[in-house]
Amino acid sequence: MRIGELAALLGVSTRTVRHYHHQGVLPEPARRANGYREYGMRDALALARVRRLVQLGLSLDEARDVIADDRDRELPEILAQIDADLARQEHEIRARRARLAELIGKAEAGVLGPDDTVSPELAAYLRQVDAPRSGASAWDHDLLVLVDSMGQADAEDPSWATFATLAADPELAARGDDFYRRLDELAGADPADPRVTALAAELAGFTAEHLLNGDATATAGWDMTAVEPFLDELAPGQAEVVRQAVRRIAEHVGATGADRREAPPTRPVR
């Protein structure tokens, strides 16, 4: 096929195809004896891959590297990968539609709550937790929802399952309620209040014992820069508890990182 036919097939202009040639992203076939460049199935697949990669947010330089790798593979292998990509997309779309159908049903029944729109994993956890109504628990709730919203929309967060397990244990749930109560009591306290350091130490110890599991843990996951912007919602003494707890966790992670898995996203512990 000619360049115009290739462009029409993929829904782009011939100028776009030539631009990809010029940038070295799309291989340009040699001219034949008649002076025209003839494009085949492999060229169409390469152009389709470029368009897909660009739509996914890759730069042309990044797309060029991917396409260059494809040149070293056989056509059946490339087709198989495309089929696998489509199968993954189909699975994700079905899961999203099932979730959407659930939300539509709740909306029609008039029982759609604000927490129902978060990820299913966090929604299940929030339903399970019966946190006391307090300033500290409200701040924690809002931060969890914010962290969930900042993640990938379709990505499952295994840490929510860990939180749910803790919430299902009456003893651990009661300890979490006690943390909230003590944090509320520090609403009018000075950051130098000895209760601040005591509570921070207990929170850090609880996290290390129940949440930092596995073979490796990333110190970067407990960087204060991740939570600092949200501490203005807390009183000075309460904010200092969070700062000290996160610092202690980071120190623990740094000391044991070689033996632990990557840490969960930074968030206060229930």
Rank of each mutant, 00 (worst) to 15 (best):
S134N: 06
D193F: 02
A95D: 12
L203S: 14
E121W: 08
P158S: 11
D190C: 05
T197V: 12
L203T: 02
L199V: 13
R96N: 15
T162L: 11
P170Y: 02
A95F: 03
R195G: 15
D169F: 00
M150E: 14
A109C: 06
P158G: 09
Y125S: 13
L146W: 09
A187K: 01
R99F: 06
L186E: 08
Q128S: 09
D154R: 05
R195T: 15
G151R: 08
D157M: 05
A200M: 06
F163Y: 12
F179M: 09
R127N: 09
E171V: 10
A87S: 13
A200D: 11
L122V: 08
R94N: 12
D140Q: 04
L126S: 05
D142I: 00
A201W: 01
A173F: 05
S159D: 09
D157S: 07
D184N: 04
T165R: 04
A98F: 01
V118Q: 05
Q152T: 12
V147L: 10
F163T: 01
P132E: 05
E108N: 10
A161H: 07
E108F: 02
A131W: 00
V111L: 11
L112V: 11
K106R: 12
A155H: 01
W139I: 11
L86S: 14
L186F: 10
R182T: 13
E156S: 15
A174R: 01
D157G: 03
D140A: 11
A174D: 07
V196L: 10
I93V: 15
A136S: 15
E92A: 15
S159K: 00
W160T: 04
D130T: 03
Q128C: 05
A131N: 04
A153F: 07
S137M: 07
L112Y: 11
W160P: 04
L183R: 05
L199F: 10
A101N: 09
E121Q: 12
